[in-house]
Simulated scan of single mutants.
Amino acid sequence: MKRAFITGITGQDGSYLAELLLGKGYDVHGLVRRSSAMTRTRIDHLNNNPNLTLHYGDLTDGVALVNLVREIEPHEVYNLGAMSHVKVSFEMPDYTTSTNAIGTLHLLSAIRAAGIDCRFYQASTSEMFGSTPPPQNEDSKFHPRSPYGASKLQAHWTTVNYREAYGLFAVSGILFNHESPRRGENFVTRKITKAVAAIEEGIWDHVELGNLTAIRDWGFAPEYVEGMWRMLQADEPDDYVLATGVGHTVRDFCEAAFAHADLDWEKYVRYNESFERPSEVDALIGDSSKAHEKLGWKAQTTALDLARVMVDADREDLARLLNKG
């Protein structure tokens, strides 16, 4: 039985990845911060699976990571743990860098110190491209425009360095935006779809958003975690972009989500300057042809279809809450 170690297992991607690996017969171990003890709803349905084990820990605690990696002896390590909200990273740059950049260094160092022969996946991000014009691929210039993007770029190059310096099977998945009904409610797509459900029920009368003209390449998270897994099954380690190749504005996503409820988004969306970033990333559209050619991976779900899926899921969640009330 293969053993996998997932940091960030309680997050959107971590929960889908845990499901995928358990379905493939893996013994799955997840790293959980003590502060996440009450926010495990994404993996609650996996609690009774005998092949899932959760461990308390933190990416900022290098010594504990060495001991944990030595204890688990994983065949595959997926580093999905991060401070992942771009806007918040401007307000918490030190914590963002400590968790995302130094945390990745701690984990890679723990693997070496424990003497474990395993394969390592680093969750990189399209935010590393920043102001570089689309389409962006593995050879595009990096120019991050936030503490989040900068911290992830440091983690990305650290992963490359450990691959080249120590022969570690280490890969970086440069994933463009990917969403799902499990997306955090402070991310713009989920904020929109949750608002549609609440407005439709008459609970809210509007939602406040920032930049509506930003262009993003949105895909479906379960498809992207399969891409992560495929990267670690390849014969040789390499870095891959995962994206749909199609860009939409935040306004487009709004329109599709509200239209699914027969609502005119312009009547309910209000602009709030406080949601703007100090430095904006105007357009991220990925070219994942390398992943398609070498891994056989291709995105299947479009952003506008995703908007409708997420609205339906938020409708169901709200209906359950109202019934309980």
Rank of each mutant, 00 (worst) to 15 (best):
N186C: 04
R190H: 08
K191C: 01
I192E: 03
I192D: 04
V196D: 03
A197G: 01
E201G: 02
I203A: 05
D205P: 06
D205W: 05
V207S: 13
E208R: 15
E208N: 15
N211E: 15
L212R: 09
A214L: 11
D217K: 03
A221C: 10
Y224F: 15
V225D: 03
V225L: 07
V225I: 15
V225Q: 06
V225M: 06
G227F: 03
W229A: 14
M231E: 03
Q233F: 03
A234Q: 13
A234M: 10
P237C: 03
D238A: 12
D239I: 05
Y240E: 01
Y240F: 15
T244Y: 13
T244F: 10
G245S: 02
G245T: 01
H248I: 11
V250C: 11
D252K: 06
D252R: 03
F253V: 10
F253H: 08
C254Q: 13
A257I: 08
A259N: 10
H260G: 05
H260C: 11
D262M: 01
L263M: 15
L263V: 10
L263N: 12
D264L: 02
K267Q: 09
Y268S: 10
Y268Q: 09
V269A: 05
E273T: 05
S274D: 15
F275P: 01
R277T: 07
R277Q: 10
S279F: 10
D282N: 11
A283V: 05
G286V: 05
G286H: 12
D287Q: 12
K290F: 04
K290L: 10
A291R: 06
E293D: 12
K294W: 06
K294H: 13
G296Y: 07
